[in-house]
C-alpha cells in the first residue's frame, strides 16, 4: 500500500509555503503526515504536489504571549508529544496537554501536529472540542496576509474548515487558565483506532462553592465540535454540585445532527455525551477546588 505519484517541495518559510501552494495545482501541505499519508495510501486523496512545512522552526514551540501574560501561543507544527509534555501548558493550560496525551499512541504523538490535527478536522479528533472549550483563536497566514478565527467558527463541517485553499495555520492562541479554575478532558475511545467516539472537554471557575464560569464542548458526536453553551449558561452562578450539573446537561444539551456510523449510533453518542459531559464538569470542579 503506497500513495499515488506526486511531486514534493520543501518550504523554507511560511511565506514560501503559501507561494508554493499558489504555484502548484492540487497541492497539499504536509506537516506530520499522520492524517495525510494514511489517506494517500488508501488513495482517498491524491495530491499532485506535497508542500512540506514539517521543518519550519518558526511554526514550532509553545511560548508565552508577548501581548500580556494571559494567553499562550502554540506553533502549528508543535507535535502532540511536545504539547503533552510542555511544562508551560501542563501548568497553565492543562486541558490541552491532557487531551494531547490521549491522542493515538507515542509514535503518532511524536509526529502528528496540532495544526495538522485541526486543519484535517476529523470529527473523532481530540483537539477541536478542546480548542472550542478553551475559547482558542486560530491564526492564519495567506496570500493576502494574516487573519484570525475563533475556534468555533474554524470548524465548518465534516473534514472541512474555514481555511481558504492557499492559507496555512501558523499559531494557535489559548487563554491561560484563570485562578480558581479547573478543567478536564474525558474520552471514550474506539477500542481499535483509539479515536474519540465521544470526547468531553470542560473548564470551570469556582468562587466559594458556586460556579462563576464554565465551558463544555464535545468531539466525536457531530460533524463539528458541539459547543454546549446552553448547558454552561445554566450553570453560571449556581451551586457547583453534581445534581446541578446533571440537571443542566439533561435540560440543555442539544445535539442537532448526531453522527452515527457502524461503530456507534447517533443516539448512543448523545447518551455518551450526557454522561461524559457531566463527569467532565465534575472533574473540572474537583480540580478547581483542589
Amino acid at each position: 500500500m503506497f500513495p499515488a505519484k506526486c511531486d514534493y517541495y520543501r518550504a523554507t518559510s511560511a511565506a514560501e509555503a503559501i507561494d508554493l501552494l499558489g504555484r502548484h495545482d492540487n497541492a497539499r501541505l504536509l506537516a506530520g503526515g499522520h492524517s495525510l499519508i494514511p489517506m494517500m495510501k488508501l488513495r482517498l486523496c491524491e495530491p499532485a504536489a506535497l508542500i512540506d512545512i514539517g521543518r519550519l522552526e518558526e511554526l514550532r514551540g509553545v511560548s508565552e504571549n508577548d501581548i500580556g501574560d494571559n494567553a499562550l501561543r502554540i506553533g502549528a507544527l508543535s507535535t502532540h508529544t511536545e504539547i503533552a509534555t510542555s511544562e508551560t501548558l501542563r501548568t497553565r493550560c492543562s486541558l490541552l496537554a491532557e487531551a494531547a496525551r490521549q491522542i493515538g499512541d507515542p509514535q503518532v504523538r511524536n509526529k502528528g501536529t496540532i495544526g495538522g490535527n485541526i486543519a484535517h478536522a476529523d470529527p473523532a479528533s481530540d483537539l477541536p472540542a478542546v480548542l472550542v472549550a478553551l475559547g482558542a483563536t486560530i491564526h492564519i497566514l495567506g496570500p493576502n496576509g494574516e487573519r484570525s478565527i475563533a475556534a468555533p467558527s474554524f470548524f465548518t463541517d465534516l473534514l472541512t474548515t474555514a481555511l481558504e485553499p492557499n492559507e496555512i495555520v501558523t499559531t494557535i492562541e489559548v487563554p491561560v487558565a484563570p485562578p480558581g479554575s479547573g478543567s478536564a478532558y474525558l474520552k471514550v475511545e474506539h477500542p481499535a483506532s483509539g479515536y474519540a467516539v465521544c470526547g468531553a472537554a470542560a473548564t470551570m471557575t469556582i468562587e466559594g462553592s458556586s460556579c462563576t464560569a464554565a465551558s463544555l464542548a464535545f468531539n466525536g458526536v457531530a460533524a463539528t465540535p458541539v459547543h454546549a453553551e446552553a448547558v454552561t449558561a445554566a450553570l453560571a452562578g449556581t451551586a457547583a454540585d453534581d445534581s446541578a450539573f446533571r440537571a443542566a446537561v439533561d435540560a440543555h444539551l442539544e445535539i442537532a445532527e448526531p453522527l452515527g456510523d457502524l461503530h456507534a449510533s447517533g443516539e448512543y453518542r448523545v447518551a455518551l455525551a450526557k454522561v461524559y459531559g457531566r463527569r467532565a464538569l465534575e472533574k473540572a470542579r474537583d480540580r478547581a477546588l483542589s
Binding site: 514534493y8 520543501r10 504536509l30 503526515g33 499522520h34 512540506d52 507515542p106 509514535q107 503518532v108 509526529k111
Partner: peptide, 13 residues
C-alpha cells in the same frame, strides 16, 4: 531520537 511508524512517513521526510 523519537519512535515513529516508518509506514506512515515518506523517505523524503
Amino acid at each position: 531520537g523519537l519512535t515513529v511508524k516508518s509506514c506512515t512517513q515518506l523517505a523524503v521526510q
